[in-house]
């Protein structure tokens, strides 16, 4: 598959009081066409800076990057991409429709039918004659998404598209983003709304202090969940452990039985068979999936963020 975004050692440094700081540090990003890519990181990690470099709004200090096969800064690529900045602000005196006309004119597009269609898509067709100053935050974010579709982009950059929105607005935005993917567009989302990202992204990169700490398929990165099995009918925790064919396990004594905490990758049915064989009674089996939040916290709070760990397709190679 072709790469929608590919960067090599992309770096941006700023001078600060304590000398030169690499705000984005030798970034190797790889985003494939047609995927929703989550670009995650804590505040100040360098997400917006990276996006601005990819858009040619600021210039890299070092390294290179390609967007849709063209070197960054190439104006031709601007016809094929679009961008919704974080906490966007649009000219307040314009109505929703005027805003679309304005941004359309920057592409040389003046297609009233298209404007109507986009307004309908983001559910603002009833509010198209209100000025932006009368729009709520959610409506502003939606008109932003509408303008981002004017040029039928192949690749969209959305910087914190759900920041500061209520749960209903969240869902509307999320559905819109999913529809972009279904239309065959690549979506690059910067965010720290992890539950959101977990729902919609295929692949993610976690950036911390300008360095990519994790990058890969979400399913691969989140491998390594655990399973909790509650049983009864054993004399003691030791007796229960002895009946199990496992090594890396952990048994706790509960008021009513025992709790086994085992890795997800083990063969669950053989464990169940051996419990049954030892006349144990299974009370419950609860899978505990690793969540993106766990991965994020684990990644961001780890002491050496400079080591890049990439997980790509290879099962079990995580951590």
């Amino acid at each position: 598959m072709a790469a929608a975004i590919q960067t090599t050692k992309l770096t941006k440094s700023y001078n600060s009081r304590s000398g030169k700081v690499n705000v984005v540090d030798h970034l190797d990003l790889h985003v494939e066409e047609g995927e929703i890519f989550g670009f995650l990181g804590p505040n100040g990690a360098g997400k917006t800076t990276t996006i601005k470099m990819l858009l040619g709004i600021i210039y890299p200090s070092f390294g290179e990057g390609y967007v849709l096969g063209k070197e960054i800064g190439d104006m031709d690529v601007h016809r094929l991409i679009s961008y919704v900045p974080e906490r966007p602000y649009y000219y307040e005196h314009m109505t929703g429709l005027e805003l679309l006309k304005f941004y359309g004119s920057l592409f040389g597009i003046n297609d009233p039918a298209l404007f109507e269609r986009l307004l309908e898509k983001v559910n603002l067709h009833r509010d198209k004659d209100k000025t932006i100053s009368q729009y709520s935050k959610g409506m502003q974010q939606r008109i932003g998404l509408a303008q981002s579709l004017l040029n039928d982009p192949k690749l969209l950059f959305l910087d914190e598209p759900t920041g500061g929105l209520d749960p209903i607005a969240h869902r509307e935005i999320r559905d819109l983003i999913l529809s972009f993917r279904d239309e065959g567009r690549t979506v690059f989302i910067s965010s720290h709304e992890l539950s959101e990202v977990e729902l919609i992204c295929n692949r993610v990169a976690i950036i911390n202090k300008g360095v990519i700490a994790r990058q890969g398929k979400l399913t691969d990165l989140l491998r390594g969940g655990r399973i909790e099995v509650t049983v009864d009918g054993f004399e003691s925790a030791e007796a229960f452990l002895k009946a199990l064919p496992l090594k890396d396990t952990n048994v706790r004594t509960l008021p009513s039985g025992f709790l086994l905490d085992m890795p997800e990758l083990e063969d669950t049915s053989s464990v169940i068979d051996s419990i049954r064989g030892a006349k144990g009674k299974i009370l419950s089996i609860v899978p505990r999936k690793k969540r993106l939040e766990d991965l994020f916290v684990e990644t961001v709070s780890s002491k050496q963020p400079s080591k890049t760990i990439t997980v790509e397709e290879s099962a079990g190679a995580n951590q």
Binding site: K52, I57, H78, R79, I81, P85, R87, Y89
Partner: peptide, 14 residues
């Protein structure tokens, strides 16, 4: 400051 310039410069505008 209001970031309106970013949306414009991300379009084919020099």
């Amino acid at each position: 400051e209001r970031r309106t310039i970013y949306t414009i410069l991300s379009k084919p505008v020099q």
